[in-house]
Design a protein around this nucleic acid. Sequence first.
DNA 1: ACCTGAACACCGTTCAAGT
DNA 2: ACCTGAACACCGTTCAAGT
Lengths: 213, 213
Amino acid sequence: MPVPERKSYHHRDLRNALISAAIPVLKEKGVMGLGMRELATLTGVSHGAPYRHFSDKTALLEAIAAQGYRQVSALCNSAREKYRQQPLQALEEAGIGYLRFVVDNPEIANLMFSGVLSPVRRGSELGEAAACAERDLLLIIELGKQAGLYAGFDNNDLTTAFLSMMHGLSMLLAGDLLPGQQRDERSVRVLGRTVAAILLNGMLRRGAGNGER
Amino acid sequence: MPVPERKSYHHRDLRNALISAAIPVLKEKGVMGLGMRELATLTGVSHGAPYRHFSDKTALLEAIAAQGYRQVSALCNSAREKYRQQPLQALEEAGIGYLRFVVDNPEIANLMFSGVLSPVRRGSELGEAAACAERDLLLIIELGKQAGLYAGFDNNDLTTAFLSMMHGLSMLLAGDLLPGQQRDERSVRVLGRTVAAILLNGMLRRGAGNGER
DNA sequence: ACCTGAACACCGTTCAAGT
DNA sequence: ACCTGAACACCGTTCAAGT
């Protein structure tokens, strides 16, 4: 009923308005609960209007996911520039930033990573944004690599390990799948640091008999 | 058109038939592409029939997710019994099994972990199955704990670290987000082992100056 | 160039009626 | 007890027509 801000004339900056309107709906009702028509009325246009800006409901979701990837890019780059001479700090800053982004925006993270959106097509806005975020993430790990920080594992594997750990922790936290784990800012930061320290130092007691190099 | 196996009489073991029919559709068209009516015709009943067995589309999805959790439970328990005296092997077996399950069934994993299904209500079939899988997973880590295998970190944190790493790697692999990474059985197993070894031994060069305990 | 509103095909879900 | 089929409200999407 309370159609918000109904500017009486015919056009505006829809597209962005649609994306902005979609995000809270996404958080409240999830992907399956979000409707194109609802979004149209929320932004005060008719139900046909969104299709001038998004060819598809999927296209809208992709635009939201792309925006998420760009946030991850930004957070990586700011961490890298802030701690250009301290690769370990940069890694921590980016890792915690990633963690917080996912925990604070579980539905968007879900859109980005869950495969609801078809295999990321090269060249699309989504594909570009995802590739870019990936690259910016890797740049941070390169920093430590160049500083000769890491052990004698393959560099790609080290990257995969770090990424897997942070991504996994983020998703588990976001989905509330770690029972009894708080999710306020401080708890998340502490847990992130702790788990990262385990990865950096190793889980095994020194001298335990395992045959890995 | 080719309505399969239309047994002419009025009832059968729907519910299981519906779940079985849903899984391939899920793999082909994703959650958003799966329809109740389609499932009904695929199993040869009218579109109203499924609602005698599932109150909701969500209920159907929950049943599928619950089945996934039970598979994870089973795989954990079999690993634990197979390597009761070798906690490290048990951990590896379960980890790789988890990895393979997620990579082979990305849509089901998605249902289980993505939060599309509302916060797991205690007492529901889904809630039971999820809690059970969680418990069975933890039992394996307990094995190593009791063998005094691990370093001086908090045990809960070690568990979280291992879980996060395996979950993250699984989801990244399943979503094809590790560029240039093969996903055949052998590659997945090798990558899983490698990454687990990094977690067990630590990422950092020994003696790198970091202040963690 | 962008938006409206009617129209279409198709959902999920319900429910009286059948067997 | 389980299934059918009509019915309802509501989707996503299209498109001629308006401004």
